[in-house]
Design a protein around this nucleic acid. Sequence first.
DNA 1: GATCGTTCTATTTTT
DNA 2: TAGAACGATC
Length: 749
Amino acid sequence: MTQEHLPDYLQGLNPEQLEAVCYDGSRLLILAGAGTGKTRVITTKIAYLVREKRVFPESILAVTFTNKAALEMRERAMGIEPACERAIMRTFHSFGAWFMRRNAQAFNLKSGFTIYDSDDSTELVHSIFPNFSKRDCGDYAFLIAKAKDYCLAPDAPNLGFISGHPEFRRIYAAYEERLRATGNVDFGDLILMPALLLERDEAIRARTRQRFKVILVDEYQDSNVAQFRLLQQLASPESTLCVVGDDDQSIYRFRGAEVRNILNFQKVFPETKLIRLERNYRSHQGILDLAHSIVVHNESRLGKKLLATRPGGIKPALAILDDQDQEIEYCARVARQHIKAGGRWRDIAILYRTNAQSLGFERLFPQLGISYRIVGALRFYEREEIKDMLSFLAFLANPRDEISFKRIVNKPSRGIGATSIDRIVTAAIDGGTDLLEACRGAEKEVHGKGKEGIRDFARLISVARDTLTRGMAEANGQGNLGTIIADYAKQSRLIEYYQGKDSIAGSQKEENIEELVNAASDSPLSEEGLLEFLDTVMLDQSQQKADSGADAVTLITMHNTKGLEFPLVIVTGLEQGLFPRNDEEGDEIEEQRRLFYVAVTRAKDVLHLTACRWRRMHGRLFETSPSRFLMEIDPKLYKLWGVPKRTLAGTAAGNAFGARASGLSGSSSGFGGAGGHTASSPGLGGARGAYVPEWAVGMTVYHDEYGNGVVIKVTASQSAGPLVIVRFDSGKVAQFFPKYTKKLEKVEH
DNA sequence: GATCGTTCTATTTTT
DNA sequence: TAGAACGATC
């Protein structure tokens, strides 16, 4: 194909990009620096293969790390060649789930299995070892996930690489056993299990290799060992394997990402063709030079140097400031200047290493008249009510799902206590039945309130299951998955429970449920619809889309900026001890340096770096020195702003504050007691006798959660004051010690 | 079941 | 400093 005969969609490409798109050897590594048009290359290549090389779209597998990236890839490839829709473009994990659903039997899984996230894994550890603290359970779950990332089973000889803890192997093994008993899989399994299956099952391997002739991997520098093993199995010598990434942007080591995957790619596949994309379309050269002068200090890198295609530019600025407040004011000043010069707030991003650093900005920006948005705060799935509903759905799909069961069985309270729950779980595990069966069995053994509760719960679930199967039978798509959620929320009375919380805390749980119901309303009312919906939700735990339409300054962690770009970037907190931390050495330092590189290369036009001489951390003020990374930059590459003051103005005040602060905590109770507390808690304290209310039968009361009710009984207790029993308008009867709750108020005598 | 006081601890977070 | 987590308490 000669230059003049190039089809339109290939014409805008630069020579390296074009070579990368058209190269048809079996192994290709595209080293794509920041802002070099990586996504364009990969999507164009997919379209090119389909259109020019007559590759069936179905035989193309393109994997990414985020749903956002997968979506973008799909859209852009389809924009060039609509048939690309039929290609498999997914995240690694979503591909794993896809593969496992299609081969459930080979994995020894029932079709209704669902996916445990890391919180669920923590709960599972806790369930096996109830004596472990929550913290420890989380740590072990993390280590187990890491072991899976590194493709290490509980019996792996080198499991010590993950943890030297003598019990870790046992804990991991117990976890695996229990997880298999639930019939579910965790995130790590979605990669590990397909990799291991393909390694041992020749028939499935051959079949899979027949299907996928071309495999493309985006952000390859972030792949982990298990993902590499999976790729090795997927790619036969005949198939095309093309990986795209930037070794300088590998910043997820702590999540198992292994830079060596990209560094050693050519060693593992000697026939590899390496193409470097070094023409940068994003930033001015000054920014790229500064970025380069940082990352060049890393030993482990393949090496490349970005060249700006955009001419001109302003030299980056480094500001050494006294303290955080000055840093914030500096950012505000820079931002205002940008606005004055005709820019928009949304052009500006303020980057920091830790989320805690956003606090100062949040406090001061309103006073300084600067509107902002924080990226990465709340995740939809993390909300209580969403998790409750998802647990309900997951339990519907798989009644052996112990974690989901435990989450919903006694919520709202049905009088099913820990003992009954344990009994049911044990019965299910010992009897090899599911938890719904076990509930029915336990009904006979449990007495009183719990008996009724278990019956109610079992009925709720049975009804939902019937609806699901009926929905399937009725075929013509009456109803959707959303209705089943809405019904459950209502019939379980969870919705009342959430409404109660909403009215107290001002949360939006009810609305969030509606949002979830909406999201589910596109899914058909069937087992398949349910599983597909759950997979999608579980595997897209991205932050809620921050409304990027708003014209506001972006506050964001350096990690979260990956893939983004802004005309004006301020990288803050460049101090030793914060970035990097003092305990970071070796590989870790190289990773942090890459993070700095990522942060800096987000800037299109203007880049500011800031560091403070004093930094408050954990409530204490520390004197700091500039980040070692700053020392590594050639001073010619930036201009120094704000001459450092010789006298440390903040010092004396800072120290005094620190001392006062630590003194304060010792006497806080006395301080709090003397303060304005009393007015807000009228029922508190017999000492202020005049405020203790009298409670009497027949009195109308209001409760923050349950609404209006009438006192039906008052009894005395030894020291807790009267015990008041109330029947609420909803019919619910509950008892309270008014002395111990603020939620119950008298309305009228 | 809710609340209070004490104690602990403190990155980053694609799936 | 601030938040979460735990235990004690009614």
